[in-house]
Design a protein around this nucleic acid. Structure first.
Lengths: 227, 227
DNA sequence: GCAATAGTGTCTGTGAGACAGTATAAG
DNA sequence: CTTATACTGTCTCACAGACACTATTGC
């Protein structure tokens, strides 16, 4: 057997990142204008080749892409799936390890001629198989929002329960029962009230501010029976 | 910007397959004895490089590995996750696209000096990060068995409801309520009775044989509230 | 008949959703 | 005071699990 022949035809490996945020009650994604061919000048998902010399793994590559090409750090990052085949990139057989990233809107960089934040319901045509990658990200985020704390990564440091419920509702696209939602948050036990902190300024009873308990900052909390 | 420099350091891309089956009420996995270095002679997950000339995508590579190295076709195949980094393979920075495969025991090839079927609870030390890949596969299969028809791919063409329930119980490691299980199977509506076919030979009332409805042969059925 | 397992009717407890009430801010 | 939203007490209905009963085979 002839292993060198097997490995001879080169396969390009890149990472692509679906960076999602919530702007005015709707999921938005960040697109970059491609600098180089193919598809130069076209809006596309942030992505890039793996740098074997510096990246500890593909997730680190994705974090580096977000830092150097979008200018953000600290986003929640989760591997989505790997897309592959001879046709997805005109340069030949390629592999893209896709990641999903969540970030609160206020941590996003300002838009520019090369950085755009668009609602996922009204995106331009995307190059490669980026449309399929984006759909996979949306499905993943929506399905995990049914039974986990994932959506909290779209909120800031502190938030009120009504705000958090709105985030869930915006992702899921349907209203949730207030009493059930609060019961679930209570029994999942991953939030703590910020002592003495209340939302102020509104012409009604102020809401208690909450934050994620330290043990759950890097990890999702799961609810066994959903919601 | 210097894209050719970015892509210069080569990254090896392979697929690894966790092939699971049920033998005597316990999940087993298929290991192959490695022919070549590194880890020559060691039991490892079936795997191999992507053949860009012939594979339509990474899933096709995984199917080809199963066919050529294990001798099976038609297994249920699902992408698991992609493992990467400089340390997982001594030959250097590498990417492994991991797949999970399910097959009924009777479709497995006979064991040989190079093919082994072992219970997942008593495996030898595995090379590379194959232990982590296997754990990911087990977690995926167990978690999907809580709300989908996934376990049916461990059954043969036809099966009785008591047999199917046993498969679920063996995967999950806990007994299930008989009435609830049958209610769920009924409302998920992905099984059909084989007319007139009943299990025979046992010294008790024979059970009705079922098969998967054609629409669900290639696709999982999901239950919104689990079980 | 008995033993053994298949399959079903029905009760009960848990838990999610609905509703309506109280609480607390601004003006 | 009114208005608006935060928060909570409680009822109800749906559904999962438990139990018990009937059904059908081999011996």
């Amino acid at each position: 057997m002839n292993r060198t022949a097997e490995a001879r035809m080169p396969v390009q490996v890149s990472v692509d990142v679906v960076l999602l945020t919530l702007v005015e009650q709707e999921l938005h994604t960040v697109l970059l204008r491609r600098a180089a061919a193919p598809f130069a000048g076209v809006w596309a998902l942030p992505g890039g080749y793996i740098h074997a010399e510096e990246d500890a793994d593909a997730k680190a590559s994705a974090a580096r892409v977000l830092k150097t090409k979008v200018g953000i750090e600290g986003a929640y990052l989760e591997q989505l799936a790997t897309f592959s085949g001879p046709a997805r990139d005109p340069r030949g057989w390629s592999v893209a390890i896709a990641y999903c990233a969540l970030l609160p809107m206020q941590n996003l960089p300002p838009q520019s001629v090369d950085i755009s934040v668009l609602p996922v319901s009204a995106l331009p045509q995307l190059p490669f198989d980026h449309r399929a990658i984006l759909e996979a990200a949306l499905e993943r985020v929506r399905s995990k929002s049914l039974y986990s704390s994932l959506p909290v990564h779209l909120c800031g440091e502190t938030f009120t329960l009504p705000q958090l419920q709105q985030v869930y509702e915006n992702i899921l696209g349907e209203p949730l029962n207030k009493v059930s939602f609060r019961r679930k948050m209570d029994e999942m036990d991953w939030l703590e009230a910020v002592p003495g902190a209340r939302q102020s300024g509104a012409a009604h009873r102020p809401a208690q501010l909450y934050r994620v308990k330290p043990a759950f900052r890097q990890e999702l909390a799961l609810s066994p029976r959903g919601l």
